[in-house]
Design a protein around this nucleic acid. Structure first.
Length: 886
DNA sequence: ATGCTCACG
DNA sequence: ACGTACGTGAGCATA
C-alpha cells in the first residue's frame, strides 16, 4: 500500500502573530544588523521546522490574509474592527516571511477579499479523504471548526513551538460538541477579538449548554418560544438577527474562489541558497552554521561546480610561480604537534594536490617556498609558516592571509574553518572541514583520498578568489596599512616567538606539586571535619548545600543554577564561618595545582623542555592577542604563592637571563591622547603618579602628601572604571559603596576631566551613527546593539564603544612595538629573543651581557612605537627566571 | 555542551 | 525601572 499524502495548511498571519508575542519580551534581542526585528520570523521558523520534521508532509501551503477588508465586511462593516493597530515591529517582518518560505521551498498564497482561514477551509474541503490526510496549523481556535475525519487542526499553545491537536473526537471529548457546532457557539457567544457581537450575556459556557440541548443556532430559534421566561430568552429573541449574522461571520468559507490546486502544493524540500541568504540577512547565526555543515554541503555538493586539479605524483619546477595560493592541511588544531596530511597549491590556471612526503621532500617545492620572489596567499599565515618550519622549510613572502584579512574587516569573522570565512564573503564552493573529516574524537581522513584532494583544491581556489576580493575591501575601509604593515608582519613575529618557546623547569614544578598536594590533603581534612561529612570540594553545587543548607549560613548571592560560592561571597562569610577560610585556601591552591602546575607539566615538549603556546591573532574583539595551549597570558602574579610559579619559567641557555618590560598605564595614556583632555595629559607629561593625581583633582587635595591611601585606591578604581566605560553600578560594586556615591565620583571626575567627558559622549554618539568604533590604527569593531531599544544590550554596546578604542589602540601600539623590536634585534645582531607578550608587556631571554643593551633598546622601541601627545613609559627588569624579572 | 570559578591584563 | 564594570582561557562538575 502506498503512503497516503499529507497536506499541511498553515495560517500564516495568525502563527506569525503568535510568534511575535511569544518572543515579545525579547523583542530587542531579535534584531538583525540593519535594525529589523526578527522575533516573529524566528518563532515562525521554529514552528515550521518542528512541524515539517514531525508531519513529513507531501504538500504544504502557508495562507495569508489578503488585506484589511474581506467579503465579511460587505455585510458587517465592523468585522475585525476595534483592533488596536498592528505594531510596526510586527508588520515590518511580514515581507521577510515570504523570503523565509521561499527558502523552505513552501508555497504561499493569498486571495483578495478572503482571509487565510477561508483558503485553508476550501483546500481542506477539497482534499479527498482517500488520498489526503490534512493538518491545519493556526494560532486561532476558530479553525477547529474545520476538523473532520481526515482533517486535524493544531493550535499553538504557549509560544508557537508547542501545538495542541484537535480532532473530531478530542473536540467532542473536551467541549461536548462537534467541530461544526463551534460556528454556532461563536454565533451565540461572539468573539471579541474579531469583533463578532454574539448575543448579549451569552458566553462560551451558556452557548455550550444551549448547543448541547438544541444542536444549532437554527434549532435554538425553532424552539426559543418553548424556553421558560428569562433574561436570556429575551436577549435571544431580541438579537436573533445578530446571532445569525455572528454565525455567518464565524463560518469559514469552504468554497472560496481560489486559483490554486492541491497538486500545486507538492513539497520538495528547501532551497538552501535562498535559506542561507535569508539567515544571513536576519543574522540567524546558529541556523546558518548548522546549514553550512549539513544540508548546505549536501546540496552544494550537487550544485558546486566541478573543480579541476592535478594530483601530483612527481614534482617539477613548472608547477610553481609567483602569486600562488598555498594550503597545508592538518587534522588537529595544534600546529606545533599536528601532522600534515596533504598539501595543495596553485593559481587560477592550475591547482596541484600532493602527499606530504612527496611535496615536503621536493627540492622544487622547497625552493619555491623559500624564494622571496614568489608571493604566496594563504589562510592563516602563522599556522602555515610554523608547520612548514617544523619540516625545515622557511616560507618567504606570504603576501596575503584571508583569515587575517577577514578578521580585520570584521572582528567577528574569525573562524578557523576556511569554508565559514568563505561563506561570510558569499563564496560557497568549499565544504566545511567537519563535513569532510567529521568532528571531535572521530575526526578522520575520508576513505576516498579524492574527497580530501578535491576539498583542498577548493580551499586553494577560495584563497585565490577571496584574496583579491578582501584586498579590495581592506582598501575601501582604509585598513590596508593595518593589514600589510601590522597584522601580517606580526603573524611572522608571533610565529617565531611560538617556535622559540619558553623553557620550563619541570623539576621545580614537580617539587611544588608535592608540596601543594600535601597542603590540599590537610585542608580537605579540616573542611570535612567542620562540615561533618566528606564531599567534593571542587563542586560549587555540593559546597553550596553544605554551607547554606547543612550549616545554615546566610545566602548572599545566587547563580542561575543555585547558590553562589564565589570569592566575594565567601569573603563576606569569613567572620561568622571559620570553615570558609579553609575553603578559600583550598580553592586558591587547587587552582594553582590543576591549572598551572599540572596544566603546565602536561604541555612541556619532551625533546626540549619548552612550552610552545599559540597566540590567537583573530579572536579578541578589541585587537588584543590571546594565548592558548597553554595560556601564558594568565600566569599568576597577584598573590605570592601563585607568583612563585613564575620561578619555573627560565632562560633556555646557561648564563642567560629573563628580561621583561611593561608599559606603565598604557590605557590611560591612550585615553589622554584620544580624548586630548588637558589635565590627564598634563599629569602624564609631568610624570605624576596618575592615581594620586586623579585623587587630588577628584577629592580637591592640594598637596600629594595629603592623598591618603584610601583616596588613591578609590581614584584608581575610578580610573579603571573610566577605561571600562564607566557605570555607577560597576563602580559601586567595585568600591563597595552606594550607587549614589559612585555616581557622585563619576560626576566629579567628569567635571575635573571635561575632555574625557566629551570623548565619552562623542564616541558613543559616533558609534550610534556608524554602528562601529575604530582604534588609532583603524581597527574596527562593529556594535550593532548600540541602537537597540533593549537597555542591557544598548548599555553594553555603549561601554564597549568607550572601551574598545582604548584597549584596542593599546593593543595596536604593542603590536607595532613587537614588529619593530623583532627588526631591531636582528639588525643589532643580538642573541636576545622575544618570548612572550602579555598585553602590555614583552618578555625576552638574553645572554647576561646583552641585558644593559636591552634596558635601553627595548624601552626606546616600546616608548617610540607611536607618537602620542603624551609620553609612553616603559619599566623593565631582569632576573634568573620570570619571577625575578618583576 | 554549559555554567561556575578564577587566573591574567 | 532596567542590571553590568572591558578583554581573555582553563579546569572542573554537571547536564
Amino acid at each position: 500500500m502506498t503512503q497516503k499524502n499529507k497536506l499541511l495548511l498553515i495560517d500564516g498571519n495568525s502563527v506569525a502573530f503568535r510568534a511575535f508575542f511569544a518572543l515579545h519580551q525579547q523583542l530587542e534581542r531579535f534584531k538583525n544588523k540593519s535594525g529589523l526585528h526578527t522575533n516573529a520570523l524566528y518563532g515562525f521558523h521554529s514552528m515550521i521546522e518542528n512541524v515539517l520534521t514531525k508531519e513529513k508532509p507531501t504538500h504544504v501551503l502557508v495562507a495569508f490574509d489578503a488585506g484589511k477588508t474581506t467579503f465579511r465586511n460587505a455585510f458587517f462593516e465592523e468585522y475585525k474592527g476595534g483592533r488596536s493597530k498592528t505594531p510596526s515591529e510586527f508588520s515590518e517582518q511580514m515581507p521577510y516571511l515570504r523570503e523565509l518560505l521561499n527558502g523552505f521551498g513552501i508555497k504561499h498564497y493569498e486571495l483578495d477579499n478572503y482571509e487565510a482561514d477561508d483558503i485553508i477551509g476550501t483546500l481542506s474541503a477539497q482534499a479527498n479523504p482517500a488520498e489526503f490526510d490534512v493538518v491545519v496549523v493556526s494560532g486561532d481556535r476558530d479553525l477547529t471548526q474545520l476538523a473532520k475525519e481526515n482533517v486535524r487542526v493544531d493550535i499553538t499553545v504557549k509560544g508557537v513551538s508547542e501545538l495542541k491537536e484537535y480532532t473530531v473526537e478530542s473536540i467532542q471529548a473536551e467541549m461536548g460538541i462537534s467541530p461544526m457546532q463551534i460556528i454556532d457557539m461563536k454565533g451565540l457567544a461572539g468573539d471579541a477579538s474579531d469583533n463578532i457581537p454574539g448575543v448579549t450575556k451569552i458566553g462560551e459556557k451558556t452557548a455550550l449548554k444551549l448547543l448541547k440541548e438544541y444542536g444549532s443556532v437554527e434549532n435554538i430559534y425553532n424552539h426559543v418560544n418553548e424556553m421558560k421566561k428569562s433574561k436570556m430568552k429575551e436577549n435571544l429573541i431580541n438579537e436573533k438577527e445578530t446571532a445569525f449574522l455572528s454565525k455567518r461571520l464565524a463560518t469559514i468559507d469552504q468554497d472560496s474562489p481560489i486559483t490554486i490546486k492541491i497538486e500545486d502544493l507538492a513539497y520538495t524540500g528547501p532551497n538552501t541558497e535562498k535559506l542561507i541568504d535569508f539567515y544571513k540577512e536576519m543574522d540567524f547565526k546558529t541556523h546558518l552554521s548548522r546549514l553550512d555543515t549539513t544540508e548546505h554541503d549536501a546540496e552544494n555538493e550537487a550544485n558546486r561546480e566541478a573543480i579541476v586539479y592535478e594530483t601530483v605524483t612527481e614534482i617539477s619546477p613548472e608547477m610553481f610561480s609567483d602569486k600562488m595560493a598555498l594550503y597545508v592541511e592538518m587534522l588537529t588544531d595544534n600546529y606545533h604537534t599536528a601532522d600534515i596530511v596533504s598539501i595543495s597549491w596553485g593559481n587560477v590556471d592550475h591547482i596541484y594536490v600532493g602527499e606530504p612526503e612527496l611535496v615536503l621532500n621536493s627540492k622544487d617545492f622547497q625552493d619555491w617556498a623559500k624564494n622571496p620572489k614568489f608571493s604566496k596567499q594563504v589562510f592563516d599565515a602563522k599556522r602555515t609558516f610554523v608547520v612548514l618550519k617544523r619540516y625545515g622549510i622557511d616560507v618567504e613572502n606570504i603576501q596575503f592571509d584571508i583569515l587575517l584579512a577577514s578578521y580585520i574587516l570584521n572582528t567577528k569573522d574569525n573562524s578557523k574553518d576556511l569554508s565559514e570565512v568563505a561563506t561570510e564573503h558569499h563564496y560557497f564552493e568549499v565544504a566545511s572541514d567537519e563535513s569532510v573529516y567529521g568532528k571531535g574524537a572521530k575526526i578522520h581522513l575520508p576513505e576516498d583520498p579524492a574527497v580530501m584532494q578535491d576539498h583542498l583544491a577548493r580551499k586553494v581556489k577560495a584563497i585565490l578568489v577571496l584574496s583579491a576580493q578582501l584586498e579590495q575591501h581592506l582598501a575601501e575601509n582604509n585598513q590596508s596599512e593595518l593589514f600589510y604593515d601590522m597584522e601580517l608582519p606580526l603573524a611572522m613575529v608571533l610565529a617565531e616567538m611560538e617556535i622559540t618557546g619558553i623553557k620550563v623547569d619541570a623539576q621545580r614544578l614537580r617539587e611544588m606539586k608535592v608540596e601543594f598536594a600535601e597542603r590540599l590533603l590537610a585542608i580537605e581534612k579540616r573542611v570535612y571535619e567542620q562540615a561533618g561529612e566528606e564531599f567534593n570540594l571542587n563542586s560549587p553545587k555540593q559546597l553550596g548545600v553544605i554551607l547554606f543548607e547543612k550549616m545554615g549560613y546566610p545566602v548572599i548571592k545566587k547563580t542561575k543554577t543555585g547558590y553562589s560560592t564565589a570569592v566575594d561571597v565567601l569573603e563576606q562569610l569569613r567572620d561568622q564561618a571559620p570553615i570558609v577560610a579553609d575553603i578559600l585556601e583550598y580553592r586558591q591552591i587547587a587552582k594553582l595545582q590543576s591549572t598551572y602546575i599540572e596544566g603546565l607539566l602536561k604541555v612541556i615538549h619532551g625533546h626540549n623542555g619548552k612550552i610552545h603556546t599559540r597566540y590567537m591573532q583573530t579572536i579578541a574583539q578589541t585587537g588584543r592577542l590571546s594565548s592558548i595551549d597553554p595560556n601564558l597570558q594568565n600566569i599568576p602574579i597577584r598573590l605570592e604563592e601563585g607568583r612563585k610559579i613564575r620561578q619555573a619559567f627560565v632562560p633556555s641557555h646557561k648564563g642567560w637571563k629573563i628580561f621583561a618590560s611593561d608599559y606603565s598605564q598604557i590605557e590611560l595614556r591612550v585615553l589622554a591622547h584620544i580624548s586630548d583632555d588637558e589635565h590627564l595629559k598634563a599629569a602624564f607629561i609631568e610624570g605624576q603618579d596618575i592615581h594620586a593625581s586623579t585623587a587630588m583633582r577628584v577629592f580637591g587635595i592640594e598637596k600629594q602628601e595629603d592623598v591618603s591611601s584610601e583616596m588613591r585606591r578609590r581614584a584608581k578604581a575610578v580610573n579603571f572604571g573610566i577605561v571600562y566605560g564607566i557605570s555607577d553600578y560597576g563602580l559601586s560594586k567595585n568600591l563597595e559603596i552606594s550607587r549614589k556615591e559612585a555616581q557622585n565620583f563619576i560626576d566629579t571626575y567628569f567635571i575635573k576631566y571635561p575632555g574625557v567627558k566629551t570623548y565619552m559622549e562623542e564616541i558613543v554618539r559616533e558609534a550610534k551613527d556608524k554602528e562601529y568604533v575604530e582604534t588609532l590604527f583603524h581597527r574596527r569593531r562593529y556594535l550593532p546593539d548600540i541602537n537597540s531599544r533593549n537597555f542591557n544590550l544598548r548599555s553594553f554596546a555603549e561601554r564597549t564603544a568607550m572601551n574598545t578604542p582604548i584597549q584596542g589602540s593599546a593593543a595596536d601600539i604593542i603590536k607595532v612595538a613587537m614588529i619593530e623590536m623583532d627588526k631591531r634585534l636582528k639588525e643589532e645582531k643580538l642573541e636576545a629573543t622575544m618570548l612572550l607578550q602579555v598585553h602590555d608587556e614583552l618578555i625576552f631571554e638574553a645572554p647576561e651581557a646583552e641585558i644593559p643593551i636591552l634596558e635601553k633598546l627595548v624601552a626606546e622601541v616600546m616608548e617610540n612605537a607611536v607618537d602620542l601627545n603624551v609620553p609612553l613609559k616603559v619599566e623593565s627588569d631582569s632576573g634568573d627566571n620570570w619571577y625575578e624579572a618583576k
